[in-house]
Amino acid sequence: TTYKLILNGKTLKGETTTEAVDAETAERVFKEYAKKNGVDGEWTYDDATKTFTVTE
């Protein structure tokens, strides 16, 4: 399944996708990605669109 991440950081904005077996796995991948890019904020997930959003 393809999951999407929307980054709404103070200095970094953008989108990325990952293939994962479930939302929990995708969330771990995306949180590591955000951490590596210095983005830390509020996380939300929309199951209907398989989209995570992190907003600083």
Rank of each mutant, 00 (worst) to 15 (best):
K4C: 03
K35F: 08
T25M: 12
E27N: 07
G14L: 15
L7S: 03
A48H: 10
G14A: 11
V29P: 01
R28Q: 15
Y33K: 02
Y33I: 07
E27A: 08
E32I: 06
Y45R: 02
L5W: 02
K50D: 04
F30W: 02
V39G: 03
E42A: 10
N8T: 15
G38H: 14
Y3T: 00
K50V: 04
D40N: 13
Y3E: 00
E42N: 08
K36I: 14
D47M: 14
D47V: 12
K36R: 12
K50A: 08
D47G: 09
E24S: 07
K13R: 12
D22P: 01
G41K: 01
A48L: 09
G41F: 03
L12C: 05
E32L: 15
E42H: 09
A34Y: 03
W43E: 00
E27K: 07
D47W: 06
A34S: 15
Y45C: 01
V54C: 05
V21H: 11
L5V: 05
K35W: 13
G9C: 04
G38K: 14
V39F: 09
R28N: 14
A34W: 03
A48F: 12
L5F: 11
E24G: 09
F52L: 01
V21A: 06
Y45G: 00
K10S: 14
W43R: 00
Y45I: 01
T49F: 06
K35I: 10
A34N: 03
A20C: 04
A26V: 03
I6C: 05
T51Q: 05
V21C: 04
V39T: 04
K31L: 14
E15M: 05
T2A: 07
F52N: 00
E19C: 05
A20F: 06
A48E: 10
K35P: 02
K10Y: 06
T51C: 03
T51I: 10
F52R: 00
N37D: 05
Y45S: 01
L12N: 11
Y45N: 01
E19I: 12
G38N: 15
V21R: 09
T53R: 09
V21Y: 09
D40C: 04
G38C: 04
D22C: 04
A23R: 11
F30E: 00
E27I: 07
F30K: 00
T53Q: 08
G9T: 15
A23Q: 15
E32A: 13
E27F: 14
F52E: 00
A26S: 03
E15Y: 06
K35Q: 11
D47R: 11
E24Q: 09
A23N: 12
T49P: 02
G9P: 03
K4M: 05
T55P: 01
T53K: 09
V54I: 07
G41Y: 02
T11S: 14
F30C: 02
K31D: 03
F52G: 00
T11H: 12
E19V: 08
K13Y: 08
F30I: 01
G9W: 15
G14H: 15
K31Q: 14
Y33W: 12
G41H: 02
E15Q: 10
T51K: 04
E19A: 10
E24W: 07
N37R: 09
Y33R: 03
T1V: 05
A23P: 09
E27H: 09
T16H: 15
T25K: 13
E15V: 06
G38S: 10
F52W: 08
E19N: 13
A48V: 11
K31G: 05
E15G: 04
D40F: 07
W43L: 03
K13V: 14
T1I: 14
V29N: 06
T1Y: 10
K10M: 08
F30D: 00
E19T: 06
T44A: 09
Y3F: 09
E27P: 00
T11N: 15
F52Q: 00
A34L: 07
K50S: 12
E15W: 12
T53H: 08
K10Q: 06
D47Y: 10
K31P: 00
T11V: 13
V39N: 03
T16I: 11
T18S: 09
T17G: 06
T55Y: 08
Y33M: 06
T18A: 08
E32M: 13
T49W: 06
N8E: 11
V39Y: 05
T49K: 11
E42V: 09
V54K: 01
A20S: 08
D40G: 12
T16W: 14
E27V: 07
R28G: 09
K35N: 14
T51D: 01
D46N: 14
E42Y: 14
G14S: 15
D40Y: 06
E42R: 06
K36T: 15
F52T: 01
R28M: 13
T55G: 07
K35L: 15
W43V: 02
A26G: 02
K36P: 01
T17K: 11
V29F: 12
L5D: 00
E27Q: 06
F30S: 01
A23G: 13
N37H: 15
K35M: 09
E32P: 02
Y45D: 00
T17S: 09
T25G: 07
F30L: 06
Y45V: 02
T55L: 10
Y3Q: 00
G41E: 01
V39Q: 04
K31C: 04
E32F: 07
A48D: 10
T1Q: 14
T53L: 08
T53F: 06
K31E: 05
E24F: 12
G9R: 04
T16R: 15
E56I: 04
T18E: 07
I6F: 10
D40S: 12
L12I: 13
A23T: 03
V21N: 14
K4I: 07
D47K: 15
E15F: 05
N8V: 12
T25V: 15
T18G: 03
N8I: 13
Y3P: 00
T2L: 15
T53I: 13
A20K: 03
E27T: 06
L7R: 01
D22H: 08
T2M: 10
V54Q: 01
D46T: 13
E19M: 15
T53M: 11
V39L: 11
N8M: 12
A34K: 01
T44M: 14
E56F: 06
A26D: 00
L5R: 00
W43M: 06
K13Q: 10
D22S: 09
Y45M: 02
K4S: 05
T53Y: 06
G41C: 02
T11R: 04
T49N: 10
G38L: 14
G38P: 01
A34P: 00
K36E: 15
K50M: 06
T17F: 12
A26P: 01
T17A: 05
K35H: 14
G38T: 05
A48K: 12
T25H: 07
E56R: 02
E56C: 03
K4W: 09
D47C: 04
E42K: 10
K10W: 14
F52P: 00
N37C: 04
E24Y: 11
N8A: 08
K4N: 08
D40L: 14
A23I: 05
K36D: 14
T2K: 09
L12Q: 11
E24I: 10
A20I: 03
T51W: 02
L12D: 08
V21K: 13
G14F: 13
F52I: 01
L5H: 00
V54Y: 02
K50Y: 08
E24R: 10
D22K: 05
D46L: 06
Y3N: 00
T11K: 15
F30G: 00
T17V: 14
L12W: 07
A26M: 01
L5S: 00
A34G: 04
V54G: 01
N37T: 14
T55S: 11
D22Q: 04
F30M: 03
G14E: 15
E19S: 13
R28H: 12
V39A: 03
E19D: 11
D22G: 05
A23K: 15
G41S: 02
V54N: 02
K4R: 13
T51P: 00
T55Q: 10
E56D: 11
D47L: 11
T44K: 08
Y45L: 02
V29T: 11
L7N: 02
T25A: 15
L7M: 07
T49R: 15
